[in-house]
Simulated scan of single mutants.
Amino acid sequence: MMWSNFFMQEEDRRRAAAGRRRAQVQGLTPEQEGKIKLVLLLVTVGATMAVLAVGTEFWVELNAYKANGSAVCDAAHLGLWKVCTKRLWLADVPAGRETCGPAELPGEANCTYFKFFTTGENARIFQRTTKKEVNIAAAVIAVLGLAVMALGCLCIIMVLSKGAEFLLRVGAVCFVLSGLLLLVSLEVFRHAVRALLQGPEPAPGPRLAYEYSWSLGCGAGAGLILLLGGGCFLLLSLPSWPWESLCPKRGHRAA
């Protein structure tokens, strides 16, 4: 009987110690976990938009002006990795447009990946030469933004699954940095488009107009959402005592 009580007490002590260890590891309250999951949902939307923007080629549309007496016109759309030139029928182009397009119209399309990622050669678009250094810089910055974003997602998953609260601040910094990198990539790409259209030498090709398309808008929205999500994670990682002193609960008010 004495030995059975001793073993029962030992088993109770082990369970209590295991419970304390679990409490130390999983230190998130249900309220904190709910807030983190809500912000993670917001960040997931931004991450999806970022991947969609980087992977598609509708960052900018280049449109030639309509030519009198011609039944076709030329348009193109490009992104970080690929350019698609299209020959459209003027009958399909809206009557109020002075230029060809939009590029989503059906026509003869020819899509090619940029050669400066493989052979180092500049691309030719409507007899104009790209500035490969600027294009490569925009692509590299965007890929770095996606990599940092993936690291931030991994940190938040570790916070929710393992209770590693110290990774919450690391994840917040990762999301803020990824949002900034995406926005910087958009600005560098804009400079690449300007360098393409306004080169140092007179352009021998047709006169072009350009308009930014939905992929670039998707990337801008993703960058802003990631910045917002990183800021929210950063606020959640701060200690609660400054907020409790500024906004005391009703039960703690003085009589």
Score class of each variant (00 low, 15 high):
residue 83 V to E: 00
residue 198 Q to N: 14
residue 243 W to E: 12
residue 148 V to T: 11
residue 171 G to D: 02
residue 84 C to A: 12
residue 15 R to M: 08
residue 166 F to A: 15
residue 153 C to P: 00
residue 107 G to F: 05
residue 25 V to L: 15
residue 18 A to Q: 14
residue 94 P to I: 01
residue 27 G to Y: 02
residue 132 K to N: 08
residue 195 A to H: 10
residue 100 C to P: 02
residue 186 L to W: 00
residue 238 L to I: 02
residue 253 R to H: 15
residue 231 G to F: 07
residue 39 V to C: 07
residue 110 N to W: 10
residue 41 L to K: 15
residue 170 V to F: 12
residue 103 A to R: 03
residue 228 L to E: 07
residue 82 K to C: 06
residue 40 L to F: 12
residue 105 L to Y: 08
residue 3 W to H: 13
residue 239 P to R: 05
residue 41 L to F: 12
residue 187 E to W: 11
residue 202 P to Y: 10
residue 194 R to Q: 15
residue 67 A to C: 05
residue 126 F to A: 01
residue 245 S to C: 11
residue 167 L to S: 02
residue 237 S to Q: 06
residue 207 R to M: 11
residue 253 R to M: 14
residue 53 A to R: 01
residue 28 L to N: 00
residue 206 P to E: 10
residue 158 M to C: 09
residue 35 K to F: 03
residue 202 P to M: 07
residue 72 V to L: 07
residue 212 Y to R: 04
residue 48 T to L: 08
residue 129 T to Q: 02
residue 127 Q to V: 04
residue 196 L to M: 09
residue 66 K to C: 01
residue 39 V to H: 02
residue 221 G to F: 06
residue 192 A to N: 14
residue 145 G to W: 02
residue 149 M to T: 09
residue 164 A to Q: 12
residue 70 S to Q: 15
residue 28 L to W: 00
residue 207 R to T: 14
residue 87 R to F: 00
residue 149 M to V: 09
residue 220 A to D: 03
residue 223 G to R: 01
residue 79 G to E: 05
